[in-house]
Design a protein around this nucleic acid. Structure first.
Lengths: 221, 221
DNA sequence: ATCGAGCTCACGGAAAACCGTGAGCTAAAA
DNA sequence: TTTTAGCTCACGGTTTTCCGTGAGCTCGAT
C-alpha cells in the first residue's frame, strides 16, 4: 500500500453528483488518489494556492470562473498540474481553444467511466489524451488532401473572436438588443452592429439566435 | 446477503461518465442494486419492454427520445417504475412539467452524490423527493401572502405552451426564420408569427433570442 | 348545445436586425 | 518603420421581427 506513489487528482465540476461519481470510479483504481475537488473555478485557483495535485480534471462549464479562466490562470505558472478538460460537447473548436491555453487532454462526458482513469494516467505520463470522437475529428482534419485541408481548417477552426466581440456575444446571448448593448458598453449602435455582423460571419451562423445558441453551447453564459 | 430485497434501479443519462459515476456511488449502498442503464430515451423504453426496475433515474437531456418523452411513454402504463428526474437546471417550470407527467422526484445535478441514494429510497417508499434548491422554490411559492401568491404563480408557473408552439419553439432554437418554419410546417408565415408572439408572451422573454435560450436551457433541442 | 382552447390566417405599422461598404484611430507585431 | 489587427463609427437599403387586433374553424369538455 505504501509502495506505490499514487497519482494525486483534483476534480472540478459544478455538479456535485458528477464529482462524487468520478470519485467513486477512481476509488477502484489503486494508482489514483483523489486529493481534492471544487465546485467552481474560483475554488480551483484558491485550492492550488496552498495545495498541489498531479492531475486536474477540469469541467469547462462552471460558475464564477469557468474552465477556460482556470486554464488561463495556470498558463503562466511554472508548476502546474497536468490538465484533463471535461466537457459535455466534443466541439473541435473548444478542443483547439483549450489545447492552446494549456490543456493536456480532452474528455467528452459521454465517455465511459473507465476512460477517465485512462485519461488521467495518460496525461500524467506526459502524453495527450483525447476521447474517441475528438480523436477522430482531429485525425480527419489532417488526413484530407493537401488542397482540401486548408479549406477544411478554414471551415472548422474558427478565426478566433476578439475580446470585444466576446463581450457583445455574451450580451446578445443575454437577450439584450443592439441599443441596450450600446448603452451598456458606451459605444454606438453602429459599432455593436458591426461586431454582431462579424460574429455572425466568423461563427458561421445565420442570425442573433444562432449567436445565442453558440454562446450557450460553448458555456459562455 | 440474500436477506434484503434490494431496490432495483435503472439509470438513464447520455453521459456515460455520469452513469458509471452514479453506479459507483450506488454500489456502496446495500439496499440498492443497479440492474440496467441507458444512454438515450429510446433505449429506456426498449429496456422496460422486457425488464423492470423499482426506480428509474432519468436525465431530461437525452438524444432520440428525451426524458419528457420517456415520462409520456410511461404515463399511460399501469406498471411503471418510480421515477427520479435528474436535470442540470433546477428550473421550477421544468419541475412542474415533469411532475404533471408522472415524475416522483427531482434532483439537480449539482447535488451531492449521497442525495441520489436518499432520493431513490424516498421515491421507492412512495414519497416525493426534491433536492434542496427545488424544495425551497416550491415552498416559497406557497408561503407568500394570499394576494401575492396568485401573482407569484402567474410569474413562475408558465401557462404551459401547446404542442404546436413547442414545434415552433424548437425550430426557432434551430436558427430557422419565420419563412423557413412556415415552409417546414406547411403553414402561413402569419401563423408562425402568431405562435412566436404567444411564445414570447407566455415564456416572458423579450425576443427570439430569448426563446432560443429558453429552449436550450430546458434541453428542448 | 354551448363554450373554450388550440390552430389557423390577415393586415398594417413600428422597431430591430441584417448587409455591404468605407473609413479613421491606436497599439502591437513584423 | 511599415503593416496588421482590433475597435470605433457612419449610411442607406432590405429583410425580418415585433406587436396589436380581429376572426374563422374544429374538437373536446361542460
Amino acid at each position: 500500500m505504501g509502495k506505490l506513489k499514487k497519482i494525486k487528482v483534483h476534480i472540478a465540476d459544478d455538479h456535485m453528483v458528477l464529482i462524487d461519481g468520478i470519485k467513486a470510479v477512481l476509488k477502484t483504481d489503486e494508482e489514483i488518489d483523489v486529493v481534492g475537488s471544487s465546485l467552481n473555478g474560483e475554488d480551483v485557483i484558491e485550492w492550488y494556492k496552498s495545495n498541489k495535485s498531479d492531475v486536474l480534471v477540469l469541467d469547462i462549464n462552471m460558475p464564477k470562473v469557468d474552465g477556460i479562466g482556470v486554464l488561463q490562470e495556470f498558463s503562466n505558472q511554472t508548476s502546474r498540474p497536468r490538465i484533463v478538460v471535461l466537457s459535455s460537447y466534443d466541439d473541435i473548436k473548444l478542443v483547439k481553444e483549450v489545447l492552446k491555453i494549456g490543456a493536456d487532454g480532452f474528455l467528452a462526458k459521454k465517455c465511459a467511466g473507465e476512460q477517465i482513469v485512462q485519461a488521467i494516467k495518460t496525461v500524467h505520463n506526459g502524453e495527450q489524451y483525447f476521447s474517441e470522437g475528438v480523436q477522430q475529428k482531429i485525425v480527419s482534419l489532417f488526413s484530407g488532401a493537401d488542397n482540401e485541408s486548408k479549406q477544411a481548417q478554414d471551415g472548422v477552426f474558427v478565426s478566433s473572436i476578439t475580446d470585444r466581440e466576446l463581450s457583445i456575444l455574451k450580451l446578445i446571448a443575454k437577450e439584450f438588443n443592439t441599443k441596450e448593448i450600446g448603452n451598456q458598453l458606451h459605444i454606438s449602435v453602429n459599432t455593436v452592429e458591426t461586431h454582431r455582423k462579424n460574429l455572425i460571419r466568423k461563427l458561421k451562423v445565420k442570425n442573433a439566435v444562432g449567436l445565442a445558441i453558440y454562446a450557450h453551447k460553448n458555456q459562455l453564459v
